[in-house]
């Protein structure tokens, strides 16, 4: 099993996919640590490849997707120079396609030496759930400090 090197992890946003108690999850590390159990480069790249092939990147609509508006606000509020505030489409472009494939899509928003804090960005709505690759996703349940709203995990830590 090949692992990502620490220098690579710190300088890249890596798409990681896993199954948490039956929920297909996607996280973007944003340069933060990957839990050791999920640090499997070969498996992850196989999943990334399959996901990318199945994604329609030209479809920017949010049909079938529920966006966490708190995250959009969080990004916009964290920008000091308002001239450079990205559009809603830009903020969501890497997450909405994942939600359309059935993944609950999270991004790392805060970190310290050992703990990464993730926030929900987009998830599939009830009527469109196309869970792909579920049987091939690594199972991972070592998340903590879970915050839930209406039965949905909106924030967690690894």
């Amino acid at each position: 099993m090949t692992k990502y090197r620490s220098g690579y992890i710190q300088t890249h946003c890596i798409d990681i996919f896993f199954d948490y108690h039956g929920t297909p999850m996607h996280i973007l590390t944003n340069g933060n640590a990957i839990p050791d159990t999920l640090n499997n480069k070969e498996l992850n790249r196989r999943i990334q490849s399959e996901v990318t092939i199945k994604t329609n990147w030209n479809d920017q609509s949010e049909y079938g997707v529920i966006v966490n508006e708190s995250y959009v606000e969080y990004v916009k509020e964290s920008i000091v120079e308002k001239d450079y505030t990205p559009s809603r489409n830009t903020i969501l472009r890497l997450f909405v396609p994942m939600a359309k494939l059935g993944f609950y899509s999270y991004v790392c928003i805060n970190t310290n030496e050992h703990i990464s804090h993730y926030m929900l960005v987009a998830r599939p709505s009830e009527q469109i759930v196309k869970p792909i690759l579920r049987e091939r996703l690594p199972i991972f349940d070592a998340i903590s400090n879970i915050i839930m709203q209406d039965g949905i995990i909106t924030e967690f830590q690894t």
Partner: peptide
């Protein structure tokens, strides 16, 4: 950069598997 990652992942081009930060 984002297009390069997508092309790499579908086997078309290069070795940029992940988005730079």
């Amino acid at each position: 950069l984002i297009n390069n990652v997508r092309r790499c992942r579908i086997g078309q081009h290069g070795n940029a598997w992940d988005y730079p930060a």
